[in-house]
Design a protein around this nucleic acid. Structure first.
Length: 435
RNA sequence: GGCCCUAUCGUCUAACGGUUAGGACGGAUCCUUCUCAAGGAUCAAAUCAGAGUUCGAUUCUCUGUAGGGUCACCA
């Protein structure tokens, strides 16, 4: 299937009419993986022939997003800078009769009274799709479609075919929503004498209702930027995109980008659409978070804590504690906002009823705390005592005295987080409350 | 509606035409220092339907059904 003697050239051709979409990012990844796997070239081409809808802001968002993801291209083009090239091809087609100037009745504002139409030979087009196998269309129903508003203003199909030809693109890997564009583009290739690239149409990413992901319905959640802002790691996102429609043929699920390149095989790409499951994405992100260097996570955590508690010193040990409770970086904000770790930096307010474990008594609890406060730092001693008199009776009030919370890490973790002084102080406070 | 694509647990998916149809996410239950979290273990959970080919179909063929994509002077 892959000819080792022929250099592979793929391209990603996003249109800057919106922010970087997750579907675009996924398709880019597959192009990137395919190119890197076989030592090919990966071209990024901005398809901004639609001057009305394309903006520099969107282009920047797409470029920034791809670079954040680490999907770097080998060559870069912008269609708006290539109008001369298209003009030549339009002229060529006009000259050889595969296209003609057509008089039109403008139906909408901005429409021309003259456009360039393709002279449709009305034939059957058959092509081999790397993923789907043989696909056949009858192009008759396409009629003489418009390929340019004017020789200076090419439309999508023309520009794509010309560029893929000029840039030597060997493989067109794109979303399945383009499959019905393929016969049109093959027709144009034949008209200009271009080689036909090998096509591979990727299954779509679907929402929970099995529909194409749309901005209208899902808002910002269709943008890569949204996931970046949520605190997803770029490698985790890439890992997740790859598993949507592809599998390594092994049971390995967590991959770095370079591991994906290594494992990638286009023959293992699925045909059916795949639902975007954020739960699985969160899990993948957590797995990547666990592999992150400690210092990196530590600096993020520290920074977020200092936003709420400006002058505290942040204990190193808190990073592990937080890592256990989060899937994505923004979960840290939630943890902090909910006061889940306030006890580390502030003396908690204690509630008399809550200090006492289940059906224990005030007297017993007081006795236990008085005993334990003398053993701070001696974990074995406390455990031994707790086992003698009843674990819950000792550990619950101890933990509550330190955290002021019904749910928290265990008392020994708390003690090491707080240090001896604070620990003793808090237990004394609980004792006072009980007396 | 026309054309095209697709069809294995709820989800992502594995399975030379021969498996007790496997794994992962999520869920449930249990264990693990009192609670939580994390971790571990166990369990539930699928071949869209009907024909055909075959000694034998998840796998090949056909039909049906369902879902999706696409039908611009957008890309």
């Amino acid at each position: 299937m892959i000819d080792p003697n022929k250099k592979i050239v793929v391209r990603m051709a996003p249109s800057p009419t919106g922010n970087l979409h997750v579907g675009t990012a996924r398709t880019t990844l597959f192009n990137y993986l395919f190119a890197k796997k076989y030592g090919g070239k990966f071209i990024l081409r901005i398809e901004d022939t639609d001057k009305e809808r394309s903006t520099k802001e969107f282009e920047k968002n797409i470029l920034d997003g791809l670079s954040w993801l680490g999907l770097t291209c080998d060559e870069f083009f912008r269609q708006s800078e290539r109008t001369e090239v298209y003009k030549n091809y339009v002229q060529k087609m006009l000259d050889n009769g595969t296209a003609y100037i057509s008089k039109e009745e403008p139906q909408e504002e901005g429409q021309r009274s003259e456009v360039v139409r393709f002279k449709n030979p009305n034939k059957k087009i058959k092509f081999d799709d790397l993923i789907r196998g043989e696909v056949e269309f009858d192009t008759t129903e396409l009629k003489d479609f418009v390929i340019a508003k004017s020789p200076e203003e090419p439309l999508y199909h023309l520009a794509v075919v010309v560029d893929d030809h000029e840039m030597g693109v060997t493989h067109v890997i794109r979303g399945e929503d383009h499959i019905s564009n393929t016969p049109r583009q093959i027709l144009i290739q034949e008209a200009i004498g271009a080689n036909r690239p090998i096509y591979a149409h990727l299954p779509l990413i679907l929402d929970a209702d099995r529909k194409k992901l749309s901005k209208r319905k899902h808002g910002e959640a269709v943008w890569v930027e949204y996931y970046k802002n949520q605190g997803y790691l770029s490698d985790a996102l890439l890992n997740f995109y790859a598993l949507l429609g592809w599998n390594p043929g092994t049971e390995k699920e967590i991959f770095s980008l370079s591991e994906l390149v290594e494992a990638f095989d286009i023959d293992k790409v699925q045909k059916g659409g795949a639902i975007f499951d954020e739960k699985k994405l969160r899990w993948i992100n957590r797995e990547h978070l666990k592999m992150l260097p400690k210092e990196e996570l530590s600096s993020v955590v520290t920074q977020k804590i200092l936003e709420k508690f400006p002058d505290v010193s942040v204990p190193e040990k808190i990073v592990d504690l937080i890592l256990e409770r989060i899937d994505i970086l923004s979960d840290i904000d939630i943890l902090i906002a909910d006061g889940e770790i306030d006890y580390v930096f502030m003396e908690p307010d204690l509630n008399l009823e809550k200090i006492i474990w289940k059906n224990s008594t005030k007297e017993k609890t007081l006795e236990h705390l008085k005993h334990v406060v003398k053993m701070v730092g001696n974990k074995d001693g406390i455990m031994k005592y707790a086992e003698e008199v009843g674990k819950g009776d000792v550990l619950w009030p101890l933990r509550y005295a330190l955290s002021g919370r019904e749910k928290s890490p265990d008392p020994f973790t708390l003690m090491s987080l707080l240090g001896q002084d604070k620990t003793e102080k808090r237990i004394e406070k609980a004792i006072k409350l009980l007396e």
